[in-house]
Nucleic acid binder design. Structure first.
Lengths: 344, 344
DNA sequence: TTAATAATTGACAACGTTGTCAAATCAATT
DNA sequence: AATTGATTTGACAACGTTGTCAATTATTAA
C-alpha cells in the first residue's frame, strides 16, 4: 500500500541507501542524483516509515512530560507543551503521575521499558516520589526537571526566581508603607512555595519589621484555601493592610472573601499575588502580581530534554528565569504609621 | 543491551514463535511449555520491543485527540484523556489544531502519513475545517467526533443533550415564576451553543412567553463576554429577573458583573448556567447549572475510537448522553407577575 | 494397531529502515 | 599516463518482532 524507500530507489535508479541519505540530509550525494531522488520522492509521495527507523535506531522520537494532576498551572503548562508539538521530530506525550499510585508507576515503567519515550520532563511533586527517581536513574533515560532544586544530584533543571520574586514584591509592599503584610502560603512540601515564603520572610526581616507568625497563614494553593485564610487574617485584632498570596488561585479566593466582607481593594486592603499563570488577569482583573514565567520554563525544559536525548550536552544544566512585578492596581500606598515595636 | 525474544527462547529451550505466542496470549501452547516461557521471561526481565511490533503490524498504538485551543473546557477534557492513558495498549497523543493554520495542517498530515497515530478524536471547531475532514476521509484513519452532529456523513460521534438540557433549565426558570429570562449565548458557529439556544427559545415559546430578542445577548463563551453581556442586560429598561448563561465562563463573568452592580443573587436576579465543566463549583460556588457530562463523553469517544482502530464495529455509532439540572441555590422562585402581553 | 485428524511447535520470510564496509568513481598529484 | 587519495555509491546485514506454513506430536476413530 504505502510507498517504500525501495520503490523510490527503483524510480530514481539508485540504491535504497542513497535515498536514505537524501531523506536524512546526509552528505555524500551528488547534486544531480539528489535532485533525481527528490523528484522520485515527490512523484511517488514517499513518506518514511517511522517504526522501521525506530527499530533500527532504538529511539521512539516521543518525549514525555509528567504531571501530577490537572489544575490551572497544569492547563497552562499543557497548552504550551502541546504547541511545542508542532516542532521537530518529537511527539510529546503528556501523562499524569500520582506519586505512590501503582497504576502511575506501572504506566511510566512500561513507557520506559518499551522505549516508547526517549526522555522525561517532571514537575513537582512527581519528582519527590523515590520510586520514580530510582526508575529514571536506573533506566538512564534523559531527564529534565521543572523545580527550584535537584531531586537527584546533577539532574538538569529549569526554574524561576521564587525567592527573589517574593522578596521583591514584599519589599515593594513595604516601600508603599505597609507594615502588616499577610501571607497566604502554599503547601509546605512544594519547594517553590517554600522558596517564596523564605523570600517574604527575608524581606520582612531585612526591613526590620516584626515578623509575626499570625500573618502567615497556611492555605492550599486554591480558591477555598485563599478564601478561608483571608477570612482568618481579616478577623485578627490588627488585620493586615496588605495580603500577599503565593498563588493565583489563593489570590482569587482572597479577593472573593474581601468582596464579601465589603472591604475595598485596594482602598482598605492591598492585594498581591505570585503566579499570573492562569489567565488570571482576564478572570480576576487587576491583581498586581509577581509574574512566574511558566511558558518560558516549559519551553526551555523541553528543548533541554531534546538536546539531552540527542546526546548534545546542553550548555546550561540549571536555568533560572527571572520574575518581574506587574502592577495592575490592587496595591495602594499608605502613609507609614509610627512604628510601634522593633525600635531599640 | 535489552533482552530480546530470542534470548528468552534460548532460555526456555523453544522457538521464538512460541515465546511470541505466550507473550500475546495466543492459543496452541501447552501449559507446561507456557510456564517455562513465562519463567524465562521473568528471569530475564524481558519486555517486548514495540517498534518491531509496530513495524510488522503497521500500527502505532498511539491515538490522537485534536483540540482547538486551551481553556477550561480543554483542560478538563485533557485531564480526563490523560487519565485514560493508564489503560490498554494505546498511548494518547493530545495535539492542538487551529483550523486554517498551515502548521497545524502539516503536523496532523505528518502524524497520519508516518502512521504515528492509528485514530483521531476531534472536537469543535476542528471538525469544521474542510482540509482536516478531507485528510481524514482520504487517509481512511479511524475517527470519532465530539459534537452534536456529523461533519462527514456517517462519522461516529458522541455528544450530549444540548437542546433538551437548555429547554429544561429554561422551563425550570419559567416554572419558578420568571418571565424575563436573559440568555448569554455563545458563538453562533459552535453547534453545541446553537442547540442550547434553540432549546431556550423553544421553551420560552412553548410557555407562551414573549420571545424578545433583546434578552438574547451575544457573548463569547468566556469571562469578559459574560461580564459585558450582563452589564448590557441589566441596563435594559425592563431588566431580566433571571439570566441563563450558556457557558460556565460567561456565568462567572455575569456573577462578577452582578456583584459589581450590587445586585444580589438570587435575591434580585437568578442565575443559571450550562456547563459545570470547570471546577466551577469550587471557583464560583453556588451557581445552578445544567451539567454537561464532558467526562463521560470523552471516555466514550476514546473507547469508541479504540474499537474502530481494532476493527470492531462499535454497537452504537451515535451516543448522546443526558444532561441534568443541578440546583445550587442561585435560582429563586418569584411571585408570577400579571402577564402583560401574550394574552389573547 | 493403524489411519486420520487435531493440536502443538518451529523454520523462515517478511516488515522498512539505517549502519557498515567495500566497490566504484572522480579529482588531484606526480 | 599512472598513482594516490578523496568522494560517491551500493550490497548487504542488522534491528526484533509477527505471519505463514510446514513439520512434528498427540489424540481420536476405525
Amino acid at each position: 500500500m504505502a510507498v517504500t524507500i525501495k520503490e523510490v530507489a527503483q524510480r530514481a535508479a539508485c540504491s535504497i541507501k542513497t535515498v536514505s541519505r537524501v531523506v536524512n540530509d546526509e552528505p555524500h550525494v551528488k547534486p544531480a542524483l539528489r535532485e533525481r531522488v527528490l523528484n522520485a520522492i515527490t512523484e511517488l509521495g514517499y513518506v518514511p516509515n517511522i517504526s522501521a527507523r525506530q527499530l533500527v535506531q532504538k529511539k521512539s522520537y516521543v518525549i514525555c512530560i509528567l504531571l501530577h494532576s490537572s489544575g490551572s498551572f497544569q492547563s497552562t503548562l499543557i497548552s504550551k507543551v502541546l504547541d511545542l508539538g508542532y516542532e521537530g521530530n518529537y511527539e510529546i506525550l503528556v501523562q499524569t503521575y500520582y506519586p505512590s499510585f501503582s497504576r502511575s508507576r506501572d504506566k511510566i515503567t512500561t513507557l520506559i521499558q518499551q522505549k516508547r519515550i526517549d526522555g522525561l520532563v517532571t514537575t513537582p511533586p512527581c519528582d519527590s516520589d523515590p520510586f520514580l527517581i530510582d526508575l529514571i536513574k536506573s533506566s538512564g533515560i534523559a531527564h529534565v526537571h521543572i523545580a527550584p532544586f535537584q531531586p537527584t544530584g546533577g539532574t538538569p533543571y529549569v526554574s524561576a526566581e521564587d525567592y527573589t520574586g517574593a522578596y521583591q514584591m514584599t519589599e515593594y509592599l513595604i516601600q508603599k508603607g505597609h507594615q502588616r503584610i499577610g501571607c497566604l502560603m502554599g503547601l509546605r512540601n512544594h519547594r517553590s512555595s517554600l522558596d517564596r515564603l523564605f523570600g517574604y520572610k527575608a524581606a520582612v526581616e531585612a526591613h526590620a519589621l516584626p515578623f509575626d507568625v499570625k500573618y502567615l497563614v497556611d492555605s492550599e494553593n486554591n480558591f477555598p484555601g485563599g478564601y478561608n485564610a483571608t477570612r482568618m487574617l481579616m478577623s485578627l485584632s490588627e488585620p493586615p493592610t496588605a495580603i500577599f498570596a503565593l498563588s493565583d488561585e489563593a489570590a482569587a479566593g482572597a479577593l472573593y472573601a474581601l468582596n464579601e466582607l465589603k472591604i475595598d481593594v485596594p482602598g482598605q486592603v492591598s492585594l498581591a499575588a505570585f503566579g499570573d499563570i492562569t489567565h488570571s488577569n482576564e478572570i480576576w482583573p487587576g491583581i498586581s502580581v509577581v509574574k512566574y514565567p511558566l511558558e518560558q520554563i516549559v519551553e526551555k525544559s523541553v528543548r533541554m530534554l531534546i538536546d539531552l536525548v540527542e546526546g548534545l550536552q546542553p550548555d546550561e544544566r540549571q536555568v533560572i528565569f527571572p520574575t518581574k512585578i506587574i502592577e495592575r492596581g490592587s496595591i495602594r500606598s499608605i502613609a507609614a504609621p509610627v512604628r510601634q515595636d522593633n525600635r531599640r
